[in-house]
């Protein structure tokens, strides 16, 4: 009984660490999580676009989430992982330091982004969720990959 009640209002997020902070992404966007492999850099790309990676024959761009949020480039570490996410028909990879857990919360628990000064951050975060260690930032995938990475195509 308890389970079915919570299921109705639950949203699931994959949470991960980037730049030492906790971020989360709606699980419906997440396709898979992969080991980091070398990427091919792209010319004229913004600094958070590390390059493109071969995902079983598809060419997907990899975004450094830490750099995207102005937290500096993610240091090289064999434990870094790539969260492969999909939005509409676009598949992208997000480089993060570690994936921590799958978080199941009720919609009501998601709070609006506090009115902070940084536009970049505010426009790419849809809300925050309080967790044991503080909070996790819910990222707006479309904003993260489109704000700077894409040229008008």
């Amino acid at each position: 009984m308890q389970a079915s009640e919570t299921n109705r209002s639950d949203v699931e997020f994959v949470t991960f660490f980037a730049g030492g902070q906790s971020f989360s992404l709606d699980i419906t966007h997440v396709r898979e999580i992969r080991r980091w492999t070398a990427v091919t850099p792209l010319p004229h790309a913004p600094k958070e676009v590390l390059g493109v990676m071969n995902l079983r024959g598809s060419v997907i761009p990899i975004y450094d989430l830490s750099a995207r949020f102005g937290l500096g480039p993610t240091p090289e570490n064999p434990r870094n992982v790539v969260v492969v996410a999909m939005i509409e028909n676009q598949t992208v990879g997000l480089l993060v330091e570690a994936v921590s857990e799958i978080l199941s919360v009720q919609r009501a628990q998601i709070q609006d982004t506090p009115d902070i000064r940084s536009d970049t951050t505010r426009q790419s975060i849809t809300g925050v969720i309080p967790i044991d260690e503080g909070m996790t930032r819910v990222i707006d995938l479309a904003a993260v990959i489109q704000a700077k990475g894409r040229q008008a195509a």
Binding site: L42, P43, H44, A45, V49, V52, G57, S58, V59, I60, P61, N89, Q90, T91, V92, G149, R150, Q151, A152, A153
Partner: peptide, 12 residues
């Protein structure tokens, strides 16, 4: 392999 669908056009 196209780049446009997942990323966008790159000059050159």
């Amino acid at each position: 392999k196209g780049l446009e669908s997942n990323y966008g056009a790159i000059p050159g």
